[in-house]
Design a binder for these strands. Sequence first.
DNA 1: CCTCCTCGTGGAATCGATTACATCGATGAC
DNA 2: GTCATCGATGTAATCGATTCCACGAGGAGG
Lengths: 338, 338
Amino acid sequence: MPAIKDVAQRAGVSVATVSRVLNDHPAVRTDTRDKVLAAVADLGYRPNAVARSLRTHQTRALGLVISDVLNPFFTELARSVEDAARDRGYSVVIGNADERPDLQDHHVRTLVDRRIDGLLVSPTDGGSPLMLDAARTGTPMVFVDRWIEGEGLDEVPVVRTDGGAAVRDLVAHLHALGHRRLAIIAGPAATTTGRERVDAFRSALREFGLALPADHIGQGDFQADSGRRVTARFLDLPHPPEAIFAADNLMALGAMDEIRSRGLRVPDDVALAAFDDIPWFVHTDPPITAIAQPTGDLGHAAVGALIDRIEGRPAASVTLSARLVPRRSCGEPEGSTP
Amino acid sequence: MPAIKDVAQRAGVSVATVSRVLNDHPAVRTDTRDKVLAAVADLGYRPNAVARSLRTHQTRALGLVISDVLNPFFTELARSVEDAARDRGYSVVIGNADERPDLQDHHVRTLVDRRIDGLLVSPTDGGSPLMLDAARTGTPMVFVDRWIEGEGLDEVPVVRTDGGAAVRDLVAHLHALGHRRLAIIAGPAATTTGRERVDAFRSALREFGLALPADHIGQGDFQADSGRRVTARFLDLPHPPEAIFAADNLMALGAMDEIRSRGLRVPDDVALAAFDDIPWFVHTDPPITAIAQPTGDLGHAAVGALIDRIEGRPAASVTLSARLVPRRSCGEPEGSTP
DNA sequence: CCTCCTCGTGGAATCGATTACATCGATGAC
DNA sequence: GTCATCGATGTAATCGATTCCACGAGGAGG
C-alpha cells in the first residue's frame, strides 16, 4: 500500500506539498496540484487514517455502546446514529453490551483506547467506574435513551424520550376498555428507563384511582425470557391481572409466549401492551398496542449533541416524547362494543 | 491523557522498558516491572491504540459490511461475528450498506482507510471496482452469506449456507398440502442469494412436475416494500398463486401486509413461506413457515476464516446447510385434515 | 585475571501523516 | 535599484507507540 512519500516521489515534490494538496490548502500552484493528483491516481493512493489520527489527535469516529443489538429498538437507534454521523463526516463503531456490565466496560475501554472522538452510551447498569473515568478524563460523552447519575456526570447531556404522557394515555386506554387490575413487567431497577416506566405507570394508575400492588410489579431484565417468567408468576396469582404492560418489546414477546402456551388468548383473557414499537407488532396475533419512541429523532439528536461537545460547542440535553399506538392487544378498537 | 513517556518518567525508566513491561517481554527485572506497573496504575495510563497500530501495522479490528442492519438476519449475524471476534481479541467495525452499492463502497473505503486487519462482506450488488481493489491490494477478505465473482476474487473464501435441500423440503411440504401454483418473490439478481434461491426453487418445482411461469417470479430487493408490490401483482393475476415464497424475511412481511390489506387470509387464501427464520415469525398471525439458517455458526465460521487469512494460514470456504421450520402459514400442520 | 556471554536497560530509528518555520524567487512600491 | 512582501515549496519536528542495536554490569569458564 503506497504511502505519502511514494506519491511525493512520483510527483517530484515533497510530502508536505502532497499533504497540502490532499487537505486542499490554498497555497499550491495549479500545475503542481495536478501533478500530485495524477500521482495519487496512478498509485491508487489512499491516506492512512491511522497516521493521520495520531498526528491530528482526532479519529472522526464515534463510539456507540448499546445494551442489546438484538432488540429492534436499539438496532433502529444504531442505524439512525450511523446515518446522522455519516452526514457529518464521522464513522460509528458499535459495541453491544448485551445487557452485561462487564461487556459494557469492555467496549468502553476498547473504544477509548482507540481514541474515538466521542462516546454515545445507553448504559446497561448503574454506573461503572470506567465510564465515570472516561467522562472525567475528557472523552466527550452523551447518554441516549438511558442514563446514569454520579459525580462528574452532571456535564453529560442526556438525549431521551419521556414516556410519561404516553403511559398515561395507555392507562386511560386500558381503563376505558374496562381493565382494572393492571400489572407491569419492569426493566432492571439499575436502569433509568427501568425505573421511570414503573414510576410513570404507577402515577398514571393513581390518577385513575387504581392501585399497583407489589405482586403486580414483576422484575424483568429487558430480555424475552424474563418477560415469560414474570408473566407466569402473574398468571399463577389467585386474581391474575387483566392487563400486562411490558417495559420493552422483547419482554412483551416473552409475555405473549407464556400467555399463548397456557392456551389463553390476547386480549380476551389478558390484555397486553409494550413500551417501544417495532414493525413486527403490526403482524403479531393480535397486533400489539405499543408506546412508540421517535427513534430516528433520538439518534439524530444524540449525534448532534455529541458532535457539539466534540467541537467545543455547548451541548444541551434533549427530551422528546413518546406516543401511544393503540392496536388490538388490549381489547376491541374504539367504536365497537367492549 | 498520559502517554508512555509520562509513565517512563514517573517510573524512572525509559519508554523502551515501559513498552516491554506492557507487552510482557521476558527480559525485565521483577522490581522494575513493579515500578512501571505502579506508575501505570497511578496515572491511569492506557496505551494509545492508534500509535500502536501505526507502528505495528495492525489494528486488531475487523470490518463487517452488511446489507441491511434492520434485517434481523443480519443483526444476528453481526452479533455472532462480534462475539467470535472478541473471543479472538479483535474488535468489529460494522458498516451498514442499506442495500445500496454507493453506501457499500463508502464503508469499504472507510474501513480500508482505517486499516482494519480484514474485511467481512455480504455484498449488496454485483461487484464494485473498489472491492476488487481492496481484495487485490491485499486486504484479507471473506464473503459471508452472499458473494461476488470476478477476477482476483477467486482467492476470497465464501462462508454461506446452502438452502437447496431446505427449499426442496419446502416445496415438498407445499405440494403435500395440495398447493400447485407456487410463486416466488426473488431477491435482486445482482446478489448470489437472490439468484440461488430462485434456482433452487425452480429445480425443486421441476422435481415435482410443476412449472414456474415468468409471471410467478417477482423481482424484489430484499426490502419489505418490494414484497408488498410483488405480492400485489401476484394477487392481481387472473389465476393468482396458491403459495408465495419470499426470499427473505422482510419481503415476507411486506407480502403479509398486502395479503391482509386485501382482506385475504393466510394460509386459507394464500400460503406464505420465507427464507430466513426470525424470532418474530413464531408470533405472527399465523406463525410463518421459514427456512432457518445457522446464523451463529455462519458468523463464527466467517470470523475463523478471516482470522486464518489475516494470520497467514490458508482459509477455506465453508458451506453450512439450512433447514425447514414448518409452521402454520402454508396450511394445517401434519396430522390434521388438509 | 581476562575474556566472553547473558541480562537488563536505554538511545534512537521508525511507522505515515500534519504543520510550523525556513527558503527562495518574483513582484511591486518607493 | 533596493527592500519588503507574498506565494509556492521544502525541511524537519511531532504525534505515541515498538523494536533493533548498543552498552554496562556481573557471572562463568579458561
